[in-house]
Design a protein around this nucleic acid. Structure first.
Lengths: 361, 361
DNA sequence: TAATAAAATACAATCGATTGTATTTGGTTA
DNA sequence: TAACCAAATACAATCGATTGTATTTTATTA
């Protein structure tokens, strides 16, 4: 029996073209498996597996033998098989609105850094702020058995069934930047309220009386909090709160231009606090091209500290967020949840602090 | 036998807490499989599998029955098992120097777009221009049995063993932006030579006589080609080629500043042609802060058409590349290679055309 | 109605690694 | 040297879906 097996291997390795080759199929799949190693060395595949995983149940002598042969044959573990058996993929799914936004790509870098250190692969998907895409991504991640999910929800997301489904059948979820209050799902966010308060106060102290606020979709807590912070500063300085001073949109470049047009019509606006830099910057450009002097006529504060904000003239006063750090913290928290199933999820959420960067706008 | 099986299912589904439950293990893994459907309906699992894959070998009647029950049980295919059996993952691996660069995130968007349309998941990894990271990523993609690879190599990559290994044991490779001449691996690039020629010519026609060139690592063809294009324009206008006018580095922000310092020392430089916008922009800023007028004293042309290039003052003349398109073309070519194993790989490479965008620098 | 073809379904092996249990080997003690 | 224990290894089931082959059922024709 042993001899036959050994001979079989021999044929397989050396007589490809020969008529003696058992099956042509063998030519396709030349990748060696633990069974190949097992047959060549006449050692059971279970021992081979244990040796490759450095189990204490295998003697050093056979371990060396197996490792050497594995190297020699160019063996590489078939992760698919391993994952199937252990029902663990060592993969983290990341869902992000769009990677082209500097803030998000920095968060991703933080996530990857921590993920790789912890032995996890990181898989990234973009939603482009589209709900359908988000659902599809979550579903893909679920059927690919990603061990856990890091997500910043899309602007269109109001229904959380896909997330609840993942939580139930997939694994833990950690929200970052744009949280959702879902049972047992912690979130890593920044102190939007305080940051907004500081930003608005900065404008007030510079003498602005009529400050508009560029805001995003209110279903996203982050934008609500930023609006509240803006209100709170106005209140403190006895400036009347006027709902018509709050502009809502997706805060794209086009939205910024749209808002700038509105401001020109309103005539008496002297301050802008925008919930992101993208809209602030396009608004500044439009206003400048229409003869408005920044900051003489209108002062502007943005949010995110995009690289462009330092380059535009005048350079943009904005809020800097600990983006990379947000990624590392969210990721290590998620890994913690994946590996310690019985952890208490209460009080795991974290609010990071951001800072106002005063520039020339 | 049948009855026992059926009863087993019954226990499993309804008597969780009961002492009659066969095994506690069952409580962990509640995700239904085709075997669960098979048992409940008393239909063989092979038929269930075929029904779910809409095989013509199953009658419409049983198909409906199975699909309904699958829906009812909340069945979701275990992709791991499927992938293991078919040894296909329907996944494309993308390796990118860094996603934070606008050019690359646009390429990725193009790749995702095409990938999803073709039924492929897209997995992204960043190298940060580090060889070790690149090798690790390729190895991870290989052992995760990604169906094909799209890669823009890192600046440190001079040895291609990891890629050859993937090609041999993994699947097809398509290069984009930064190609490597590896057997049977086509590439999608842009006409760097012509674009550079045009950019340099533009500076010459504006009256520049002493034009320096910011270049990248010469091992990367792209930078070599851009340098050649620059030389070729100089030659055509009988401007002496001076090797000391070519600055080489990784073209980071810091490199741009470093280069600007050199230019200040050289005194007589009146033109800069940079192989990317990042370095061009930081150089402009440094030069401006040192009293140089752009473009009066020194004219500048960049490469990439980063969003910042339109915002900086003066706005930067640069080369716009069809980034999104590069992604879609590279991806559909790769899918083609994955699905048609016997395709002729000759002449599949493609060179896209880019255009000079004249602004105020 | 019997014979036959075609359609529908069941059987069983497989993908490659993991892991609980059983068996063998080698060393130690009485 | 027999008895015993621990270390090392082998056996066999399993993860969940797929797929070639065999069998059963149904429909069709003579």
């Amino acid at each position: 029996m042993y001899f036959i097996k050994k001979q079989f291997i021999y044929l397989r390795k050396n007589l490809f073209g020969s008529t003696f080759t058992p099956l042509n199929l063998d030519m396709k799949n030349t990748k060696p498996t633990i069974h190949d190693i097992s047959k060549v060395l006449n050692i059971d595949s279970s021992t081979v597996s244990r040796a490759l995983n450095n189990s204490p149940r295998v003697s050093k002598k056979t371990k060396d033998l197996i490792l050497k042969k594995a190297e020699e044959l160019g063996y590489q573990k078939n992760t698919l098989a391993s994952n199937l058996r252990t029902s663990k993929t060592n993969t983290i799914g990341v869902i992000v609105p769009r990677i082209s936004r500097n803030f998000f790509s920095s968060v991703i870098s933080g996530i990857e850094e921590t993920g790789y250190k912890g032995g996890y692969n990181v898989v990234i998907g973009q939603t482009f702020d589209n709900l359908e895409r988000e659902q599809k991504l979550v579903s893909t991640f679920l059927s690919n058995r990603v061990d856990g999910l890091l997500i910043s929800i899309s602007m269109e997301t109001t229904d959380y069934e896909h997330l609840e489904n993942y939580k139930k059948n997939g694994g833990p979820i950690v929200f970052y930047d744009r949280p959702v209050s879902l049972k047992d799902c912690p979130s890593i966010t920044i102190n939007d309220f305080e940051a907004s308060y500081k930003a608005t106060k900065h404008l007030i102290l510079k003498g602005c009386k009529n400050i508009v606020h560029f805001s995003g979709v209110q279903k996203i807590n982050l934008y609500k909090n930023r609006k509240e912070g803006y209100f709170s500063a106005l209140k403190e300085y006895n400036i009347p709160i006027r709902e018509e001073y709050v502009f809502e949109a997706k805060l794209s470049e086009e939205d910024g231009i749209e808002f700038a047009k509105r401001i020109l019509k309103m005539k008496h606006i002297d301050g802008i606090y925008s919930a992101n830099d993208t809209a602030a910057i396009s608004a500044i450009q439009y206003l400048k091209s229409n003869g408005i002097k920044i900051p003489k006529d209108i002062s502007v504060v943005g949010f995110n500290n995009d690289p462009i904000s330092a380059v535009i003239e005048p350079s943009l006063t904005t809020i800097n967020q600990p983006d990379f750090e947000m990624g590392t913290i969210a990721c290590s928290l998620l890994i913690n949840l994946i590996e310690n199933k019985n952890i208490q999820v209460q009080n795991l959420s974290k609010i990071l602090t951001s800072e106002l960067i005063v520039r020339n706008s």
